[in-house]
Design a protein around this nucleic acid. Structure first.
Lengths: 197, 197
DNA sequence: TCTCAAAAGTGACCGCAGGTCATTTTTCGA
DNA sequence: TCGAAAAATGACCTGCGGTCACTTTTGAGA
């Protein structure tokens, strides 16, 4: 029965991960130290590195898990969209659900910009598992684009507007509401990808 | 003649600042250490803190200086704009000049997101001296808006799209070109602030 | 029940960061 | 030439991410 040891190890991982999610969510990525995470879970620092190779690695795992969950809540709704406007509505319902997840949108932003400094992280962040990526939006929109404007660009412009809004938001600037940005993004997508304006 | 000492002090500041600009420009804000800055200029670490209270403080000074210079190259052109489309062209010529300044746009982005974590820095970054700010764009656009859409929102949406593009860019994603974003931003501004679409 | 190798857990330690400050060196008017 | 004031120094502080030799716990087989 080596099973029990594995279970214990898994249990420890879960506890450390829960602690990490709580502290990252409260204080952000950089401002949360590995010592804090382990201490808060009742372990010593060294235990962290038995389970993950770096703070980055655990954070990416959390991001992957969170994105997966966001997407699940979105499932089904996508197929119902019959035109570009409806597809954009689905996308923005999705984006708003991220914004409503405490301050995780700010933390994603923080990590995204942080990741730009490392080539390895940069490559990872361009994968859709870790990112509210251009290409995912492009996919959702592709079937409904009526012009020859590239769907990837519609997706990327949408991402840009959203992430630009995250910056605006994380600085505490109050000029834009999420509704303003949603409207603008949809108007932009329609003007590029829809036959009538 | 206490002048000579002041001059020497000023000289040291200039040397340290030049060293900082070079190293920040090459490696970014976080990845450039104060020791590197002083060493590269031929001083000891302590000398840095005789002139500035923190790394942040010097960086803000550099930002202020750079923004001032960008704006100077823009002066005059603003007054010539007779409608919203021309005003947007002036703004985007300005933004492109920032993008063309080596990788400083990425570094501004890095510091902007970094600053969100400190209340003091956040407040500073909302001032127009330190930021490619919403309100500056709003000002440039105000006289040419023909609808009742708030000029501040036009400015803020423009900033969001630009900074979102900076993220896209710093991740090395190649889907969007600066031209794409410029077109989108101008289309967006015109659709909100111009009578005919 | 006892044994002991393997797995889990520990925390002192490393190099380096931003920042401090008592001390040394340089400057320059009297 | 002298000495106070200004400039420059670098050892030192705390805290970071990460390492690893060590101790403790676990559990299958005798």
């Amino acid at each position: 029965m080596a099973k029990k040891q594995q279970e214990k190890s898994q249990q420890t991982m879960n506890e450390l991960m829960a602690s990490a999610i709580e502290l990252f969510g409260k204080n952000g990525f950089v401002q949360t130290s590995v010592s804090e995470i382990t201490e808060h879970a009742g372990y010593a620092k060294g235990s962290f590195y038995r389970h993950w190779n770096s703070k980055d690695e655990l954070f990416l795992l959390i991001v992957e898990q969170k994105l997966k969950r966001y997407r699940e809540t979105r499932n089904g709704k996508v197929d119902k969209a019959t035109n570009l406007a409806e597809a954009m509505d689905v996308i923005w319902d999705f984006l708003e659900s991220i914004i409503n997840d405490k301050n995780w949108s700010s933390i994603f932003l923080e990590f995204t910009v942080y990741s730009a400094k490392s080539e390895i992280l940069r490559k990872l962040m361009n994968k859709s598992v870790y990112r509210l990526s251009n290409e995912i939006f492009a996919e959702l929109v592709r079937d409904h684009v009526e012009t020859d404007f590239p769907p990837e660009k519609i997706g990327a412009l949408n991402t840009a507007l959203f992430e630009g809004y995250l910056i605006h938001r994380s600085l505490g600037t109050q000029v834009l509401s999420i509704k303003d940005v949603r409207q603008a993004a949809i108007a932009l997508a329609l003007s590029n990808g829809s036959k009538q304006s």
